[in-house]
Design a protein around this nucleic acid. Sequence first.
DNA 1: ACCTACTAATAAAACGATTTAGCATTCTAC
DNA 2: GTAGAATGCTAAATCGTTTTATTAGTAGGT
Lengths: 345, 345
Amino acid sequence: MKGISIKDIAKQAGVSPTTVSFVLNGKAKEKRISEQVSKKILKLAAKLKYKPNQLARGLRTGKTKTIGLIVEDIANHFFANVAKIVEEEADKFGYKVLYGSTEDNLAKAKGLLEVLEYRQVDGYIITPTPNLDKEIEMLKNAKKPIVLMDRYLPQIPTNYVMVDNFQGAYDAAEYLLKLGYSKIAFVTTTSEQIQMKERLNGFTAAMKAQQANFPRKLLKKIPFSGTREQAVDQISDFIKGIPDLDAIFFATNYLGVYGIESIKQLGLSIGEDIALISFDDHDLFRLHTPGITCVAQPIHDIARNVIQVLMNELNNNDHQLNQVVLPATLIKRESCSKRVKVIAG
Amino acid sequence: MKGISIKDIAKQAGVSPTTVSFVLNGKAKEKRISEQVSKKILKLAAKLKYKPNQLARGLRTGKTKTIGLIVEDIANHFFANVAKIVEEEADKFGYKVLYGSTEDNLAKAKGLLEVLEYRQVDGYIITPTPNLDKEIEMLKNAKKPIVLMDRYLPQIPTNYVMVDNFQGAYDAAEYLLKLGYSKIAFVTTTSEQIQMKERLNGFTAAMKAQQANFPRKLLKKIPFSGTREQAVDQISDFIKGIPDLDAIFFATNYLGVYGIESIKQLGLSIGEDIALISFDDHDLFRLHTPGITCVAQPIHDIARNVIQVLMNELNNNDHQLNQVVLPATLIKRESCSKRVKVIAG
DNA sequence: ACCTACTAATAAAACGATTTAGCATTCTAC
DNA sequence: GTAGAATGCTAAATCGTTTTATTAGTAGGT
């Protein structure tokens, strides 16, 4: 079951493959192919349902019309949604997407990059793991189109699209403080990556601005490796260890989910005993009783911008950096509103 | 920045490209290449970091080592998790995955299949939309390796991997009845697809087996098209329209999520005013207060079986059908336990 | 000396497209 | 009538592999 090739069309039309190629690539005018021949070829191609072999085309042109998408975890709500829009948007430009998850693991990321290089992808969308600097640098030197997502590498100037992590965390902290909470913990990952740093920076900046106290013991870092159970236990222990804890801010959506589980496990009541805010929105946060206040990322905008920047890089030659920072939105729900009532009451 | 080709190695080793190809493909022995030459080539390849051009290889061999994954919605919890395992497992066999979401829309599915054909994927993993029969038939005739997932097309014998929908729904209904619930509604999609039919069949079979009543008005179908808000409103109206409703079974995870939202909107209390079971597990179900009882699909097993069946199809020539049906697990939580207490009390 | 068999390698075709360079033929202008 | 330009199309090279068919050269047997 071979497919129809350009030669088959050429034979049936009584012309050379060259002519067919010109016509099918819209170069009929430019290459002075007569209307007559042009039409005949177009009709034949449609009739035979000719589909250009992308491999052959790619081999010759060096373009695969494929982009690589490397995320932290494709099963995570945030990345899964990004992946969906990325695929849809890429499709509009005739690109297909190969994906892979790093689990924030350097070795996995390297492996994925190697495979994508093998596959000759035209461009890369990457959520970098820690210490991926060298590899990104190499891609840059090889003039490969790259867009980083969700985070960037401060030492390497690249295109990136991300949310304003500082502002998002700042708004959240300020909101909690204005509601009257004062002993607020911050739970983040052990990773030193920029997006996590910025969230912490935004948080502490807001605390400082409101003259609130944020001692080191209110900061907890959970490693990405390790099971869900371990993380939940660590958070439980952390909460137990701090008497009179008012509120907790979780720096990622999965930490927020773990946090809810921990608090449930401890028999505490969210909103009553302890206030809670998480970064990233989630069905669970929206429909939890009480609803969980969160700092939502503009997922659609992020994905659309990523593709736009990448397409720009692929098609233009202006090597101008595109660094897009999108605003986060504080979505207020009931998980941190009690304190006001207490004060008011 | 051209890459290193087989010719470069040949030149440096002072041999022909043919010899290099033989050695690099592990055919040194078979093709009687001397140890000496063999070693020299292997060393050079490693030193130059030779990476075979998959396009050229694919063009010649007709194999792209790429598989197409067509799901209903990659952003959905179930499919996102499947996509993750599928990618990991495929990677072990040297395959990469191109994906796309159909939104259960025939036109989108056709479009995706066309693009994947263009791309010469070696095999297909497909969650078929309604009326995709003709296209699947054509792929079958073209001897393309296919595995259907989550559902199958009864008119076409193909490989498939799915959960035992009948048993899952049966167990859930039986569980509700044994707890003492009697007026139980079933909320499903309008689609007539086999997996939804089976869930309904399992449900009604259990009702019949326990001599319970299941009048037509306790069955509600929600179209896949339409917004979340519309669906939530439809479910709300449905619930409002049935006095003394005991319990509801939602036939998919997203319907379950909508259902929780509807019930919340109506000011009813899950577990107290109304019991709830959903198909598919979800973070929201696990951590909701009260926890939502559900029929969980063995996501890892599904994904692993899918790849196993596909790899078998790709590598062997026995055209034996593989139709895998995996058991569902009823996860009991608090969303439907009240009634027992009422009776007991 | 001659036939066969084996060893160690290679030349060349093929996969299916794109693209460069060029070949007839007709037209225009002086 | 002929140089030069324009027209309409094509041959052949190329991308980087894999694979088939073939070539020398050596060795063994009779």
